[in-house]
């Protein structure tokens, strides 16, 4: 078993169109590093230096990782990680 990662439409150019990919790692940070190794460039769309980008939402199962520990959030086989670009704007 692996970690299931759900990819939003806007990032599917990095996954060859795949809506769901598999990943591995013991923390979210590791998972993203491994994802980037398999799908070059995706890491940069999720991270701003050493932090998650402000307007990208990442969820472990049903929880926003911002409330779980950010990139330090532990992940394990069987978890689902969902990436959704935040919908935001302003005048």
């Amino acid at each position: 078993m692996a970690i299931e990662v759900r990819i939003p439409t806007i990032l599917r150019t990095y996954t060859g169109g795949a809506k769901v990919v598999e990943g591995a790692g013991s923390t979210l940070g590791e998972l993203i590093k491994n994802l980037d190794a398999a799908h070059a460039g995706i890491g940069d769309r999720l991270l701003d230096g050493e932090k998650l980008r402000r307007f990208v939402n990442v969820y472990k199962n049903d929880e926003d990782v911002r409330f779980l520990g950010g990139l330090e959030t532990p992940v394990a086989d069987g978890d689902t990680v969902t990436v959704l670009p935040a919908v935001a704007g302003g005048n």
Binding site: N57, Y59, D64, A86
Partner: peptide
């Protein structure tokens, strides 16, 4: 900004 939980 959409509430992140509601958005999911």
């Amino acid at each position: 900004e959409f509430d992140s939980k509601e958005q999911l």
